[in-house]
Design a protein around this nucleic acid. Structure first.
Length: 556
RNA sequence: GCGCGCGUAGUUCAGGGGAUAGAACGUCGGCUUGCGGAGCCGAAGGUCGGAGGUUCGAUUCCUCCCGCGCGCACCA
């Protein structure tokens, strides 16, 4: 039995208890197997604190009526610790109502776990060494706004995967080799000397600015300029990534792979393994063997390795560093989906397990301004940069915004709204909830009211307290889910839901002051602390700050 | 043409084999004694692109169609 992601959570005990009951009933009924049951929050709060589909899953394997099976499970679930009431509803749902002790224990558990709450929540008992590559933007221009999405996503995914128990290293692949670099150098020269930008070259305004900065003259060597230009662009990218608090463990230079002989070695390795053939003097890799549409050139007829050959060398290098048990994750743009088959093919041709090479395709970011969609062309120099986005709305808002949607969904950003409404960005709502929790603790301490004994508190929990606790209890599940599905946006939504629960708690439950007994203050302060800690964790996994206090918003 | 992704509220999108499909923004109507109102409560708004199929049950899985986006180099 693999219990999914309940670590550090009082939900785990409940789930384990439920699962053993189901297992026993399955065994007693000579069922061919036992289903893995789920515990979830019912849509309707009136249905209970948690619900399970156990009977709906178990009934088919027992070939019995779901309601009847539900009743049998329900009769036994009632005896589990923490369960206050059980009832069967609808087609066979089992709704659970938990007692106050369960809620209080859940708060304590979250508080005790602190920054480790939900850690190791992945159900993959085997923690994998993961090498996560993202952004890898072409260094022939500044970081465009779309790359900010890759940066926010990749970095958040790394954080989530680490929290879920994996060992993650992040990499940025620098395409600092090949014709595009020479073209960049030639473009710099042309822009500086009033010449014609070459076919396929770079025309953006930034090219002119950079040429001036580099002091380009008619005598400059375009090849050298290309290298200098790339170095400058990488420097600028790192600056912006830094502002976003995105740091890579490694920047892997493509040029370095060539210079180390790894690219040629890779081609020879494939040739020796009989994976290539010759065509008009070029060397072609049989990627179709592994499901690719067509075979791919790795060395041109003129003897120069292709870009793909460097990719291959890089794959081999990555596996050498992670070991064969490692997992390579690539975050690529939607315009790269054609790479999936060839990269996996290359991995297999090299003798690696293609299942350990995983590609996440990030859909496009579309930017609109004044009701018009912005064109995003790096070659023409027509684009919005990450720098501009950061200047307009700041790192926290950019990251939170970019992580609102699933990676397989296109993301639309209205630049006018993004700047005008930066104050209304949902990130502030969440940060405010965190700051408010901090503020309450400060107030209680200032008033010297923190000395009560919560164990002495006999007041029943308010629904708004329970709601908050249930949300906290779900956190480990959300982390596990986000990690397994490579979906950090789930934490974005979680943080907003938690903040919303905070607002309701704040409305309904006073922590201190008139008529609030010291024991109740203590009990609620526990919850405030656990909430603050969980909120801070969720924000941290998104790479967003959790301030102790917010700047007071000015009256308009 | 082939391939990949996506069609869910006015808009931008969550969700996902099961109980009345959710949020934000926008619209409309309410809420001042108090720990910070960047808030709270309510209303209107949906044949989950269309047609079949699998299933006790499909918005979710499968097939086809339509629409949108993106790819199909001995470029990088």
């Amino acid at each position: 039995m693999s219990s999914t992601g309940f670590s550090n959570s009082a939900l785990r005990g409940l789930h384990d208890g439920l699962q053993s009951i189901v297992d026993e009933i399955a065994r007693a009924g000579d069922a061919p197997g036992t289903p893995r049951v789920e515990l979830e929050r019912p849509r309707e709060e009136a249905h209970g604190d948690f619900a399970t589909n156990a009977a709906l899953m178990l009934a088919p394997v027992l070939r019995r009526n779901p309601r009847e099976v539900a009743q049998e499970i329900a009769d036994r679930v009632g005896a589990l610790p923490g369960v206050d009431a059980v009832d069967v509803a609808g087609p066979g749902f089992i709704n659970l109502r938990l007692d106050d002790s369960w809620f209080l224990e859940t708060v304590d558990a979250a508080l005790e776990a602190g920054a480790d709450f939900g850690r190791g929540a992945s159900n993959a008992a085997t923690s994998e060494p993961i090498l996560l590559e993202f952004v890898s933007a072409n260094p022939t221009g500044p970081l465009v706004a779309a790359s900010a999405r890759h940066a926010a996503y990749g970095d958040a995914l790394a954080r989530v995967l680490r929290h879920a128990g994996h060992e993650v290293r992040t990499e940025f692949y620098v395409n600092d080799a090949g014709r595009q670099v020479d073209l960049f150098g030639e473009s710099l020269l042309a822009r500086a000397t009033g010449g014609q930008v070459p076919e396929g070259g770079y025309e953006g305004e930034y090219v002119r600015d950079l040429a001036a900065e580099l002091g380009v003259t008619a005598e400059s060597d375009p090849v050298e300029l290309g290298q200098l230009g790339v170095a400058a662009m990488i420097g600028g990218m790192r600056e912006q990534l830094d502002r976003m608090h995105v740091h890579f463990d490694r920047f892997q230079s493509e040029k370095a792979l060539h210079e180390a002989g790894a690219v040629v070695a890779g081609i020879e390795k494939l040739a020796a393994a009989g994976q290539t053939f010759d065509e008009d003097g070029a060397t072609i890799l049989r990627t179709t063997t592994w499901g690719d549409d067509r075979d791919r050139a790795v060395r041109r007829a003129n003897g120069i390795p292709t870009y793909f050959a460097a990719d291959i060398a890089y794959i081999d290098d990555k596996f050498a560093r992670t070991g064969e048990a490692g997992r390579l994750i690539y975050v690529l743009g939607a315009d790269h989906h054609g790479y999936i088959a060839r990269l996996k093919g290359a991995a297999q041709a090299l003798g690696h397990d293609a299942d350990h090479l995983e590609i996440v395709i990030m859909q496009m970011v579309t930017l609109t301004e004044a009701g018009e969609q912005k064109k995003m062309s790096k070659r023409r120099g027509d684009f919005v940069t990450t720098q501009e986005l950061l200047d307009r709305i700041g790192a926290d808002a950019v990251r939170f915004w970019m992580l609102e949607r699933s990676h397989d969904q296109q993301l639309e950003i209205d630049l006018d709204k993004a700047s005008e409404q930066s104050d209304d960005n949902p990130v502030f709502y969440v940060q405010y909830a965190h700051a408010r929790m901090c503020s309450i603790r400060r107030k209680v301490e200032d008033a010297d009211l923190a000395g009560g004994d919560s164990a002495e508190c006999s007041e029943a929990l308010h629904d708004s307290e329970k709601r908050l606790v249930k949300r906290i209890a779900e956190f480990p599940l959300v982390v596990a889910d986000a990690a397994e599905r490579r979906a950090p946006h789930r934490l974005h939504h979680y943080s907003r839901d938690l903040a919303s629960d905070v607002a309701k708690f704040y409305r309904d439950c006073r922590v201190m002051g008139d008529g609030i007994a010291p024991e109740l203050t203590a009990r609620r302060l526990h919850l405030v602390d656990a909430t603050r800690s969980t909120l801070a964790l969720a924000l941290d996994l998104l790479g967003v700050g959790a301030p102790d206090r917010m700047e007071r918003r000015d009256e308009a």
